[in-house]
Design a protein around this nucleic acid. Structure first.
Length: 224
DNA sequence: GCGACAG
DNA sequence: ATCTTGTCGC
C-alpha cells in the first residue's frame, strides 16, 4: 500500500462459504462501532466494483475533497473475480479489487464510502465493516436496496430517515437524499457513528440519490 | 420446506 | 452486477 499504507489487519481469502462466514465472525469484534467518528472529513473516498465478462472485476476508488466535491485522486484495478457472488459474502468478491485500487492512491482518505452494507448484515459484518477493519480507516456503507431487517418508508423530504431494525436493534437508517426519491440504506462500517455517517452521506449527495464519491467510483468502474 | 437475497 | 426502449417528469 502506498497512501493507504500498512493494513491494520492482513486480509484472508477463504475458499469456501463456511470459511468465509468464519472469517467474518473472527473479524466482527474488531469493528469499532462506538467511535463517533469525524464530524467533517476533508478527503472522502468512494468505492465501487464494475463487472465485465462475469469473470472480471474492476475495483474503482475516487477521492473527493468533501468541501468542493473536486476529484483529488482516483485509481482502478482490474482482475479476475476470485469469489462468487453470494449474498452475505459480498465482501470476498469485491474486497480484492478494491484493496488493489486503494493501493494505487497517492493520498490518504479520511473516510471510506462503500457501495453496500456495514453492520446491517446477516452476521453484522458487511463490506464496509470489512474494509474499515482491514484498512483501519473510518468506513460507512451506503446500499441502494434493502437487504436485511425492516424499515418504514421515511417521509418524502430530503434529509428524512427511518431506522433499519435487525433483531430489535438499530442496524442503520433508510435515508432520503433527494425529495421524492427512493432512500439509500446507510449503516456503520468502522470508526464512525450512525449519526455522523448519515450526515456525511447527506452532505455529499447535493444533486443525486447516490453520494457523489460513490457515483464517481461507479462511473470510473464502468469505463473501458 | 421454499423463496428471497448488498452487487 | 448486467442484459435493454421507451417514457414520464422536472
Amino acid at each position: 500500500m502506498t497512501a493507504v499504507t500498512s493494513l491494520a489487519h492482513e486480509p484472508r481469502w477463504p475458499a469456501s462459504v463456511a470459511a468465509a462466514e468464519a472469517e467474518q465472525d473472527r473479524l466482527r469484534p474488531l469493528a469499532d462501532l462506538d467511535d463517533p467518528g469525524p464530524v467533517s472529513a476533508g478527503l472522502v473516498a468512494g468505492l465501487d466494483v464494475g463487472y465485465r465478462d462475469d469473470e472480471e472485476v474492476v475495483g474503482a476508488v475516487v477521492v473527493l475533497d468533501a468541501a468542493t466535491l473536486e476529484v483529488v485522486d482516483q485509481a482502478t484495478a482490474r482482475q479476475r473475480a476470485s469469489f462468487p457472488y453470494v449474498p452475505g459474502l459480498f465482501a470476498f468478491r469485491e474486497l480484492p479489487p478494491l484493496l488493489a485500487a486503494l493501493d494505487e492512491l497517492t493520498v490518504r482518505p479520511e473516510l471510506l464510502m462503500c457501495d453496500g452494507y456495514g453492520v446491517a448484515h446477516p452476521r453484522r459484518f458487511g463490506l464496509a465493516c470489512h474494509l474499515g477493519v482491514l484498512t483501519g480507516l473510518p468506513a460507512v456503507g451506503v446500499a441502494k436496496t434493502a437487504f436485511v431487517g425492516t424499515h418504514e418508508d421515511p417521509p418524502p423530504e430530503r434529509g428524512s430517515w427511518s431506522e433499519i431494525l435487525l433483531d430489535g436493534e438499530v442496524a442503520g437508517r433508510a435515508l432520503r437524499t433527494r425529495d421524492g426519491v427512493k432512500p439509500v440504506f446507510v449503516s456503520q462500517g468502522h470508526r464512525i457513528g450512525l449519526e455522523n455517517a448519515c450526515a456525511h452521506v447527506l452532505r455529499l449527495s447535493p444533486a443525486y440519490r447516490v453520494p457523489e464519491p460513490i457515483r464517481q467510483a461507479d462511473r470510473l468502474s464502468r469505463l473501458p
